[in-house]
Design a protein around this nucleic acid. Sequence first.
DNA 1: GCTTATACAATGCAATCGCATTGTGAAACG
DNA 2: CGTTTCACAATGCGATTGCATTGTATAAGC
Lengths: 196, 196
Amino acid sequence: MPKKVDHEERRREIAAAVLRLVATRGVEAASLRAVAGEAGVSMGAVQHYFTTRDEMLRFALAHNNTLLAERGARLLAERQPATPRETFRLFCDLLLPFDEDSRTAARLWAGLISRACVNEPTRELAAAAYTGLTDFVVRQLSGALPDADAGRAARHLVSVIEGLRWPVLFGVYTRAQAMGILDDQFELIFRPARAR
Amino acid sequence: MPKKVDHEERRREIAAAVLRLVATRGVEAASLRAVAGEAGVSMGAVQHYFTTRDEMLRFALAHNNTLLAERGARLLAERQPATPRETFRLFCDLLLPFDEDSRTAARLWAGLISRACVNEPTRELAAAAYTGLTDFVVRQLSGALPDADAGRAARHLVSVIEGLRWPVLFGVYTRAQAMGILDDQFELIFRPARAR
DNA sequence: GCTTATACAATGCAATCGCATTGTGAAACG
DNA sequence: CGTTTCACAATGCGATTGCATTGTATAAGC
C-alpha cells in the first residue's frame, strides 16, 4: 500500500525531539508544535504517530528510561568492573549529574517525577523505573555478596545515589563532595559481615 | 489612604491557593485564573500582589519551604525527642510521604524540582532548601555526635531520606520497607566509632 | 490502471494563556 | 471636604495551546 516506514523508529525520532525540549526547557515547553519544529517535521506528522500529547510525553519518557538502561549495560560491558567498588562508581557516573549527558538525564528524570505526581500512567512508569534500577543493581551485586545482603545493599546504594541527584544537579554538592558521601556509604555497607 | 490590608498575609493566602493547585494538578495547572478561582478572588487581585506568574510561583514554593521548616520545628518542640534515633524518626515522618500531608509536600517538592531545572531563581531556591535542611539536621545531631561526625552523619541521613521520597510516593516501597532501610542505615551510621 | 490504505501537510477552531489597561469604590490625609 | 492613593474588579488582546478536520502525494495490491 503506502510508503514503507519504520513506525517505531519514527516514533523514537520524535521522542528524541521531545527529550531535547524537556531537558532544556521543561515538560511544559514540549508542545505539539514545538516538538514538530524540533524534530523537523510537520505537526500533522507528530499527530500521526501519537494520538495525544499525553501519549507522546509518556512514550518519550519511557523511551528515555530504556536508553538509560542501554547506556548502563554498555558502560558495564566496556569498562568491565572487577570489584563491587568499581561497579558502584560506574553507577554513580551513570546516575549522578556530573557531566552534561547525565545532567540532561537528570532533568528528564525531573520531568518524569513531576508528571508522575499528577498523571497515573506516568506514575506507573516512574515506579517501574525505580524497581527496575534496584533490580539491576541487585543483579550486579549478587556475585559479591550473599543474596540476602545484596538486596539490602542495593536498596541502600540506590537510595543514597538518588538522594544526591538533586543536590548535585543544583550545585549544593560538588562532584568530590558527593563522591565522598558515597565512598563513606560504600565503606559502611561493604564492611565485613562479622563487624555488623 | 486606602483600606488597611496586611500585604504579606494576602500574599500568603494566594500562595496557599497556588500550593493546593500545584499539589493536586501540577505546576502547569497554577495559571493566574485558576489561582484566582481557588483563592476566591478576582484575577486582578492576584496580579495586584504578584507582578508576574513566575514571581507568584517562586513565592509560593519558597513559602512552602518556610511552612515545612516551621512544621519541623513545631514537631521537634512538641515531641521532644530524647535520642538521636527518635529525632531521626521524626524527620522521616516529616519528609517522607507517608501521610496525606507529607504526600502533598512531596508533590510540591516535585514541582519545585522540575521548575528548578529550567528556571534559575527557582534553582537557587531549591539549592537553599537542601542546604538549609542539611544544616538543620546537623544542628539536631551536634549534641549526640562529635562535630566532625555530625556533619557526615547528617549528609548521609538526608541523602537516604531524600532518595526514598519518590519511591515511597510512587508506591515502590511501603512505609514499613522504607523504615526498614532507614533503620539499617541508622544502625550503620551510629555504630560506635571504634568499630569504624 | 484503478483502488485503497498509508503518511503526512495544512489549516481551522475553540479554549486558554499571561499580561496590560482601565474603571471603581473606599479609606486615610491635608 | 476634597484629593489622593491604594485595593481590587473587569475586560481586552495577541499569542499559543491541544485537537479535529481536510487535503494530497505516494505506493502497494488486484
